[in-house]
């Protein structure tokens, strides 16, 4: 066996020893703890106070109109929180159903709202309410119910609305966050 061969074999053996013979590696590693302050999520809640009708009408007839007033309390916590408040009209039940077109419901602002410093509140043309900014909002709203004297739909007999009823016993207001996509 010549010297070159001996050297090659020795080098190969050294390589094999270093490789652990079975292919295991000895990479160095270490870890370090990264201190992160707790992340607190905010909250978004809505409550509605017991409201009242004005005027109180015992038996409605065409031409009558009344307003139901209540106050919405919205708690919005979050540096970048914003959202929309909507009246869920599906919760209003009318009987008979054919009389539904003879009632008009609109949601608008009541008395002056309480808006947190630096926040904004807007009543929109589509009867939704938008808020922008954290804090506690007190939002008086007025739900106007109108029973027009002159029926707008000539294809519906005006007498269909006699002995009708409109149930507002489960009127629902929903608040939904409308934050932008988180990158």
């Amino acid at each position: 066996m010549n010297k070159f061969t001996k050297g090659s074999i020795a080098a190969s053996a050294a390589v094999l020893l270093l490789l652990g013979g079975a292919g295991s590696l000895a990479y160095w590693n270490d870890d370090a703890a990264l201190a992160v302050d707790p992340i607190n999520a905010g909250q978004l809640t809505i409550d509605a106070s017991t409201g009242a009708w004005a005027p109180e009408i015992a038996s409605w007839v065409p031409g009558d109109q009344a307003v139901y007033s209540t106050v919405l309390a919205v708690v919005a916590e979050g540096d970048n929180i914003q959202g929309t408040i909507e009246l869920e009209l599906d919760s209003v039940e009318i009987s008979p159903l054919e009389a539904a077109g003879q009632f008009e419901l609109t949601l608008g602002a009541g008395a002056a709202a309480t808006v947190p410093d630096g926040a904004a509140l807007t009543f929109n043309a589509d009867q939704s309410i938008t808020f922008d900014g954290p804090g506690t909002y007190a939002i008086p709203v007025a739900l106007t119910v109108e029973f027009p004297f002159n029926l707008s739909d000539e294809n519906v007999s005006p007498n269909i609305s006699q002995n009708a009823s409109v149930d507002f016993d489960s009127v629902s207001f929903t608040v939904t966050q409308t934050a932008a996509m988180v990158p």
């Binding site: 978004l44 409605w60 007839v61 209540t70 609305s161 507002f168 016993d169 489960s170 929903t174 939904t176």
Partner: peptide, 20 residues
């Protein structure tokens, strides 16, 4: 997205119409 929402329900009673 993780959009929050909540709802509040009020009982505004019912209205009824009369007759001629």
């Amino acid at each position: 997205y993780a959009l929050w929402n909540d709802s509040a329900v009020v009982d505004a009673g019912s209205i009824s119409t009369g007759t001629p």
